[in-house]
Structure formats: C-alpha cells, structure tokens
Computed example of a mutant assay.
Amino acid sequence: MEFTIMAKTKLAALLLTLLMAGTAQAADLPATHYAPAQAVLPVFTWTGLYAGVNAGAAFSDSGRPRYSEGPGFVGLNPGTLAGFQRSREQTGFVGGGQFGYNHQVGRIVLGLETDFQYAGLDRRRSGTGTFPNLPAGVTDNDNLTSRSRLDYLGTVRGRVGFLPSERLMVYATGGLAYGDVDVRTSYTVIGTGPFFPGGVNVIPYSGSRSSVQVGYVAGGGVEYAFTDRLSAKLEGLYADLGSSSVTARYTGTGGTGPTDIYTVRETNRFGLVRAGLNYRFTGL
C-alpha cells in the first residue's frame, strides 16, 4: 500500500513538473500579432461618362470671296471689287456645353465627344468706287457690301489622349462640324445723268440666304483632373464648313431682267480657342 501511494505521489509530482516546464517554454515564445486589414484605395481613371461647359473665342479666316456677275449686270466701278475682297479677320464669342465618354487603356484614353454652342462670329466686307473721267453732269458711285454670320456651331468628334501623369491628359481630336451660316449682300449705284434711264438715280440690289453648313473640325488640347470628378481643359480647334453663296437681284423699279444679278460666295473657315470644365458621372 505504501509503495502504491508513493508511486502515485511521484507520478503526480512528475506531471506537475512537466506542466510547469511547458508553460514556461510557451511564455518564452514570441507573441503572434495579426495586422489589421488595409483599405484598398481606388485608382483614378478617366473611364466614364462626362458633361460640361465651355467658352472662348472664334477667329474667322479672311480668305477672298468669289464674285460673279450675271449677263445683264453692269460692271462695278474700278476699285470697288478690290476693296470688297479685302477683309480683316473677325473675332467673336463662343460658348456652350459638351457631353462625352472616355475609355482608358493604360496610358491611352479613347473618347467620343459632342458639343453645341452659340457662335457670335460676324464678318463684314465693303467696297466703294467711282468712275473717273465722266462727262459733265454725270456721276456714278458704287457701294458693294457683304455680311457672313455664324449663329451656332456643333461638333461630333473622336478624341485620342495620352497621359503623361495619372491626372494630366494631352489629346488630339477631330470629326464632323456643322453650323448655321447667314450670308447677306447689297449693291447700290448712286448716279446722275443720261446713263440712268427714267431719271432713276439710285439702283439697288440685295440678297440673303441662311443655310446649315456641314464640314470638318480638327485640333487638340490638354485636360487636368483636379478632383476625382472635376477636370478643366483648354483646347484649340480649326473648322471648315465649306462655302456659302448668295445671289443679289435688282430690288428697285426699272427695266431690268432676270439676268441682272450678281453672286457672292464666302468661305466658312475659322479657328476656336476655348476653355472648359467637365464633370464625370462614372469612374473614380
């Protein structure tokens, strides 16, 4: 009996010793710490729909107009047409809005944009002349004018952009352009003497025409996203809407026929410089 009690006592002491040794070794092991999960920040992207506004200036091309006379028209005085064909480049305000979509692939951004805006571009021409060496009592003074006005402008363009940095885009753009062009012209002869039948001393001509012209537009710009939703851009464009013609007819009273006309054809080419602000609806 004594042996059994002593054996059990020794076994219990041995188990207690082993348990205390294991606890001590476990206490000496380095503690394991689990780091909290890190939030993944979204990467900025240009992909998504956007809309915005723009404003700037338009500069007309001062190319020479084409002028032609009907078979019944009496020719212009010397110098009248030369003065009429000279014209300064005109500047006007443009402003409106745009809507588009971008898709970013790496450092390349492909997009499609359409815009529509008011265009206050108004070009005027004027030429005057007087026949020299006329007989006594005879005078002949001519005044030829023309006005070409662009009332509105719209474009549908593709865009190809490159990203020097995450939020800075340099792009080229081009596509279709359209606009309403109003052309007017008038010609007045003021004279005295036997060359003016029926005693008429004022011979007036006039004509007007408004049409939607379609052409192309091309250019480029730079755009910077200063927040995840807002970006500002600056771009320059060149647009060519073809040419518009207007025919003037005699509007007075007298013996003129249907061929007593002249025609003016104006080119519709101009440059645009404008700044804009865009808001992106999708993509962060």
Rank of each mutant, 00 (worst) to 15 (best):
I5Q: 15
A7S: 09
A7Q: 11
K10C: 03
L11G: 11
A13Q: 15
L16H: 03
L18G: 05
T23Y: 02
A24M: 14
L29R: 07
A31P: 00
T32Q: 13
H33V: 14
Y34K: 11
P36G: 12
Q38M: 12
P42R: 09
V43P: 00
T47I: 03
G48C: 08
L49H: 06
G52C: 10
A55M: 14
G56H: 08
G56S: 12
D61G: 13
S68K: 12
E69Y: 01
G70L: 06
L76A: 13
L81M: 04
A82K: 02
R86C: 01
S87W: 07
Q90I: 05
Q90Y: 09
F93V: 07
F93T: 02
V94S: 12
V94H: 08
Q98P: 02
F99L: 15
Y101I: 15
Q104C: 05
V105Y: 07
G106D: 13
D122P: 00
T128L: 00
F131K: 05
N133C: 03
P135C: 03
P135W: 01
T139I: 04
N141D: 14
D142C: 02
N143T: 13
T145S: 09
S148L: 11
G154R: 13
V156H: 00
R157C: 01
G158V: 06
G161K: 10
P164A: 12
S165G: 08
V170W: 09
V170K: 11
L176C: 01
G179D: 03
D180I: 00
V181E: 08
D182F: 06
V183C: 01
Y187P: 00
T192K: 02
F195I: 07
P197S: 11
V202E: 05
R209E: 12
V212Y: 04
V214W: 13
V217E: 05
G219F: 10
G220V: 00
S231H: 02
K233N: 15
L234W: 06
G242F: 06
S244N: 08
S245K: 13
S245P: 00
T247H: 07
Y250A: 06
T253M: 02
G255S: 11
P258N: 10
P258M: 06
D260C: 02
R265L: 04
T267A: 15
G276E: 06
L277Y: 02
L284T: 09
